[in-house]
Simulated scan of single mutants.
Amino acid sequence: MAQVEERAGRGLLDMQEEKQRRDHELESLEQQLGRCTAKSQTADAEIQFLQRELESLRNSEHELEALQNQVDEDTTEVIPSAVYVAQVYYLITKIKWEYDTQPNILKGVHYGADLATPINIDTSARSRNDVSDQLWAFVSTEW
């Protein structure tokens, strides 16, 4: 009887130890689950933020495409008319302008009947009237 009681007591102690070990393991798993849940919530929040950012960027891209299309349409309408005006000015004045100059410098060549005359005028050093008079002096009045 004593042996049975001893075996039963040891079994009970072993079971209690196993229960404590399993309780400790369960507590550890619950803590790990809590950490993983927090990480998951953080990741979900980051995903939602990134999705909103992506949608915002897509909207911005669509707006930029619309603006680019509008600029392209405006450019195709404006440039031909600007080219036409430049061609008319050349036909009247016979002056070909250099466009890659400083803002205050007028450079070009006047193609007169006899010879080509270079033009290089610093507009900051002269009045607008003087510049205009010098340029109009190149234009032939004979029609």
Score class of each variant (00 low, 15 high):
102 Q>K: 13
25 E>T: 01
11 G>M: 12
119 I>T: 01
92 I>H: 02
67 L>S: 07
70 Q>C: 10
30 E>L: 15
69 N>V: 05
117 T>Y: 08
94 K>V: 01
110 H>I: 02
32 Q>P: 02
71 V>F: 12
38 A>S: 13
108 G>K: 02
90 Y>S: 01
128 R>L: 09
96 K>A: 07
43 A>R: 14
76 T>M: 01
18 E>C: 05
113 A>N: 05
69 N>M: 14
81 S>E: 09
52 R>T: 13
6 E>W: 04
34 G>R: 13
27 E>H: 05
119 I>P: 02
106 L>D: 06
123 T>F: 07
121 I>M: 14
55 E>Y: 01
11 G>P: 00
2 A>G: 07
32 Q>E: 14
39 K>F: 10
14 D>P: 01
131 V>K: 09
80 P>L: 03
63 E>K: 02
8 A>N: 11
92 I>Q: 02
141 T>H: 10
13 L>E: 10
13 L>Q: 13
141 T>W: 13
12 L>T: 06
111 Y>A: 02
61 E>N: 04
104 N>V: 04
109 V>F: 11
78 V>N: 02
60 S>V: 00
100 D>Q: 12
73 E>I: 06
71 V>E: 06
43 A>L: 09
66 A>L: 07
140 S>T: 10
50 L>K: 07
65 E>I: 03
42 T>D: 12
35 R>Y: 11
121 I>P: 08
138 F>I: 02
137 A>L: 08
60 S>D: 13
12 L>P: 00
44 D>K: 08
11 G>Y: 09
116 A>R: 06
76 T>Y: 04
31 Q>G: 09
29 L>F: 00
9 G>C: 03
8 A>D: 10
135 L>Q: 03
77 E>H: 03
60 S>W: 06
95 I>W: 01
119 I>M: 06
91 L>C: 07
27 E>F: 00
84 Y>R: 04
115 L>R: 15
85 V>T: 07
36 C>A: 12
23 D>M: 10
110 H>D: 08
82 A>Y: 04
44 D>Y: 14
107 K>V: 02
142 E>H: 13
107 K>I: 00
44 D>R: 04
13 L>S: 03
44 D>P: 00
127 S>G: 15
91 L>S: 07
1 M>T: 07
114 D>G: 08
105 I>Y: 11
99 Y>N: 08
109 V>H: 03
113 A>H: 09
100 D>K: 12
138 F>L: 08
138 F>M: 05
130 D>F: 08
3 Q>W: 09
67 L>M: 09
70 Q>W: 00
63 E>N: 10
117 T>Q: 15
141 T>R: 05
134 Q>Y: 08
137 A>S: 15
72 D>N: 12
62 H>S: 09
32 Q>V: 01
77 E>Q: 04
82 A>N: 03
105 I>P: 12
74 D>Y: 03
19 K>H: 05
84 Y>F: 10
130 D>G: 07
22 R>N: 06
28 S>P: 00
134 Q>H: 10
